[in-house]
Amino acid sequence: MNIFRFFGDLSHLASIFILIHKITTTRSCRGISFKTQALYVTVFVTRYLDLFTSYVSLYNTVMKIFFIASSCYILYLMRVRYRPTNDPSIDTFRLEYLVGPCVVLALIFNYGYNPTELLWSFSIFLESVAILPQLFMLQRTGEAETITTHYLAALGAYRALYIPNWIYRYFSEGYVDPISVTAGLVQTGLYLDFFYVYFTKVLQGQKFELPA
């Protein structure tokens, strides 16, 4: 564990608390892509199956359980509790375009042909693109509530912070995980446009609006 990974994980935790806070205080999941949230549940469940087979640390176990539980809770909020505020007509990204290629990539790039490794690899690839339905929705509506942009910024910062962590681990432990690094770079890259608008507008006190 190093500070980059630790702050990355904290940022990930923060993003989830911000999202739950947004939904429960506004009593609305307007502006949030259900598809992206469903993909995160898939990501966490497929990656953290090793909860039952290997123990890393108490920190690791608690975080895994939290990510699975909180992502399921968010689906519950969107699908049951605040269902009327969820508008599927603007959440139109085709999931098969994401899931299909990730299955293929996992079959080609993995650290072993067994279910655990294949699902782990799949989850890494899927995580890197899981935000696309959300960003697509943002692009379509052209604007976002400020709280939603804070959620996205914290979520984007999480994987971005893993990059210096991998550089640090390479020099300190000789640890290299090419699958995570490649997917992590792609994942962070997808946020660059968003980050640009976030830093130049939202953090200057303006509303998040995309140029027409």
Binding site: D50, T53, M63, N114
Partner: peptide, 10 residues
């Protein structure tokens, strides 16, 4: 099934 790489990251 034995994991081939340490999965200590989240």
């Amino acid at each position: 099934t034995e994991s081939t790489t340490p999965k200590d990251e989240l």
